[in-house]
Simulated scan of single mutants.
Amino acid sequence: MNFNMEEWEPRTNLGRLVKEGVITSIDEIFEEGHPIMELEIIDALLPDLEEEVIDVNLVQRMHKSGRKVNFRVIVAVGNRDGYVGLGQGKAREVGPAIRKAVDDAKFNLIKVRRGCGDWGCVCGREHTVPFKVSGKSGSVRVTLIPAPGGVGLAIGDVGKTIMRLAGIDDVWSHTRGQTQTTVNFARATFDALKQLSKVKASEKDLKNLGVCST
């Protein structure tokens, strides 16, 4: 669905500031810690987000009127340049479930720290993770390790999709647990990327690692 700025009628003060051009970057919102309550804000500031369906599954539950069957969909969104989100949606049909998952992923959008964190690589580009970090979900634990340029994405297919959407070209990884559980693998990978912003480092160290200040 194409976003039309002219037809958008903001319902929040933050939305009005975006539409009026007072706020022109998603970074301004993240840095101030403002909650995003309207999807149109993300559509306006990050119009180039791509969507990838990670997993589609049938889920059943018993109800007094009988067995209820829904589709559960996991979707990742990203602009391949430092922003990525992961979301889930449920509905009786696949299409609406995907739409819900995409919206959820946009609300869960994060900015990913990137750099040149491998000491054997001095290219200075933002092509890998700047630090070793780990994330977990359920029994799955994913550790991301900086890699030199040209290594590629040494991680499972689900992780590859999330890394590409985040704009990471090279990474080593180590996984533990039931990694064949797609949902937990995706969430653990996403959690590891979230941990990047929590690592404390001096401006000098960040500059040496090729990380742009956030």
Rank of each mutant, 00 (worst) to 15 (best):
G117Y: 03
D191P: 01
S25L: 10
H34T: 11
R72K: 11
F190Y: 08
G21H: 09
R16H: 06
K204I: 14
G85C: 04
L46T: 08
S197G: 07
K111S: 10
E38L: 07
R125C: 11
D48I: 05
L193M: 01
V102N: 07
F190I: 00
E32Y: 10
P146R: 08
N57G: 09
I74N: 08
V94A: 09
Q60W: 00
R114C: 12
T189L: 09
K111A: 07
A188F: 05
K64M: 08
P96C: 10
S213F: 12
L86E: 02
A154R: 13
V133N: 09
K19H: 00
E40S: 10
T143P: 07
L196Q: 04
M1H: 13
P47K: 12
C123V: 09
R99P: 05
G120T: 15
E20W: 00
Q88E: 14
M5P: 00
V59L: 04
A192R: 02
A105C: 03
L144K: 08
I23V: 12
N13Y: 11
E28N: 11
G152C: 02
L193D: 00
M37G: 03
I54H: 02
R176V: 10
R67A: 10
L193V: 01
A166L: 04
E203R: 15
I168T: 02
L165S: 02
V77I: 15
P10F: 03
P10A: 09
V69L: 11
L165R: 04
E9V: 13
G210R: 13
G149S: 11
A91T: 08
D55I: 05
A147T: 04
G135I: 04
I145W: 06
T179N: 10
S25A: 13
A201Y: 07
V75M: 03
T143N: 06
G85T: 10
K198G: 02
L193N: 02
S25K: 15
I145H: 02
C121F: 05
G210C: 13
V22K: 08
V133E: 10
L86R: 00
K198F: 03
G138H: 02
A201G: 08
K136T: 05
K198S: 12
K19Y: 01
T214H: 15
R114L: 13
T214F: 14
G89R: 06
V59D: 00
G89P: 06
V211A: 09
R72W: 00
Y83W: 14
D118F: 08
I168E: 07
K160I: 13
H174A: 15
D157T: 13
F185M: 15
W172E: 14
L86N: 04
I41N: 02
T189D: 07
V75W: 02
R164D: 06
L49T: 07
S139L: 11
P96Y: 12
D55C: 06
G149L: 06
L49V: 08
K132M: 14
G149F: 02
T161K: 15
V211C: 14
G95V: 15
G149D: 06
D27F: 06
A97E: 07
K106A: 03
I162Y: 01
S139Y: 04
G210N: 12
M37Q: 12
K207I: 11
K106T: 02
V77R: 05
G124M: 06
